[in-house]
Design a protein around this nucleic acid. Structure first.
Lengths: 224, 224
DNA sequence: CCCCTTTTGTTGGAATTACAACAGATTTAT
DNA sequence: ATAAATCTGTTGTAATTCCAACAAAAGGGG
């Protein structure tokens, strides 16, 4: 666990908590580290969870699979980010999503009840942790709202442009990488892969953008 | 404000707080009541907010309008529910949505900072309020996740059936009302109104469901 | 280096959705 | 009560997306 202390001290959940206190806090919370292989399912749709996870290394995706095998990616979480915290905090009985390890990953699990109902020793941290958690879930809601904005667009082209514009803004540059391959990007935008690929090629041909694999460059709005 | 005490004591934010304390707590929080006419905009896309709202009576919708005038409804909030809390809690600078009064409404506004940083007198409630708020935003996250599930469906028919099935489940009956007219339902599912109307008629003709205005009855899966 | 697998892009046809227009039904205003 | 406004459903056409198939490109393993 010492190996991941540099990661953990930058996790928003532990903001305001001294590094010297982190280890004993994690021990008090009975935090448990686990290893997952690429492709392994961490949480299954339909189950009830009490723990949320923190990504120490690797990446996980929050997904929904429909009856026909279409996959919808809701979000991806990489190092330092939490997943499943809303479901654990809300104490729901039936998880509406699955969580999948996209790459080999090390994850830290914490039982939400231990966070919410602290022992007397950790009482000084209780409010801090809950307030940090409130900040995290609020930001998650905003990210999900942005995601909804992408998919509210009525054509595949608009969805692509909305998403890619936001990524350029996030990167602070017109050249940037995205964390998805083509199938994953289609699953994130809820469209069909090859049709999206065709749209990307049209956008490239029109001069609006250029790309190779997951590297993109926006070339201005001249082509729109 | 006394008029709305019965509403307020059932608001989840105030769970665990005695009715006798509510009034002084609201005073301490400098809660402010406001009246809005039908159609009035409460929060504007792009602005920065520090207050969140509670619906005392009426209804508000969280919406996004695109360049072409298409409206996307993210959520609706009726009596007793909060809106804007994630944005206020996360302290964002630019609101990505607008909030509109769908009907004539009475709303109560609270400054998030007053909630988070209490005076010495209210210190006993600080943790309680933050924890209640965490529960609220977590549930909001789950509702938004469910909304994403509706719109992840790849055809208008599937979107309709996903939404209507969830409403039947929520109502505990195959006969139920929905809180949207046709245009609003289309805006909620991100589809075009008349195409959706045509799909509803096909579903009725196939025997899957029947409806009149916002009254629906699911007739089993025989018609699918 | 070669072979196999996976990813990406392309293409034509089928399916679905958007659009515009309009008629009928319902609600609102005078 | 009547007229005006709004909502809902229908229809034909245009536009877009999905699907299946396949070729080309890229990546991985022996």
């Amino acid at each position: 666990m010492n190996k991941y202390l540099p990661v953990l001290k930058r996790v928003n959940l532990f903001r305001g908590i001294e590094e010297a206190e982190l280890q004993s806090l994690l021990s008090c919370l009975s935090a448990k580290e686990s290893h997952y292989e690429k492709g392994q399912t961490i949480f299954f749709n339909g189950e009830s969870i009490e723990r949320f996870g923190i990504v120490l290394s690797g990446e996980v995706q929050i997904v929904q699979d429909d009856y026909y095998g279409n996959r919808s990616i809701l979000a991806r979480m990489d190092t330092g980010n939490l997943f499943g915290e809303s479901f654990a905090c809300a104490e729901i009985k039936t998880l509406p999503v699955s969580v999948i390890a996209t790459t080999e990953s090390e994850l830290l699990f914490i039982d939400y009840h231990r966070l919410a109902v602290p022992c007397a020793r950790a009482c000084g941290f209780h409010c801090r942790l809950i307030q940090n958690m409130l900040n995290i879930v609020s930001i998650k809601n905003i990210l999900l709202t942005q995601k909804v904005e992408f998919i509210s667009k009525r054509t595949t082209r608009e969805k692509l442009l909305a998403y890619l514009s936001a990524e350029a803004k996030r990167a602070g540059s017109n050249r940037f990488s995205i964390p998805f391959n083509r199938q994953q990007l289609a699953d994130y935008l809820f469209v069909e892969r090859s049709a999206m690929s065709a749209e990307l090629s049209k956008l490239k041909k029109s001069g609006a953008l250029t790309f190779h694999k997951n590297q993109f460059e926006l070339l201005g709005i001249g082509g729109l």
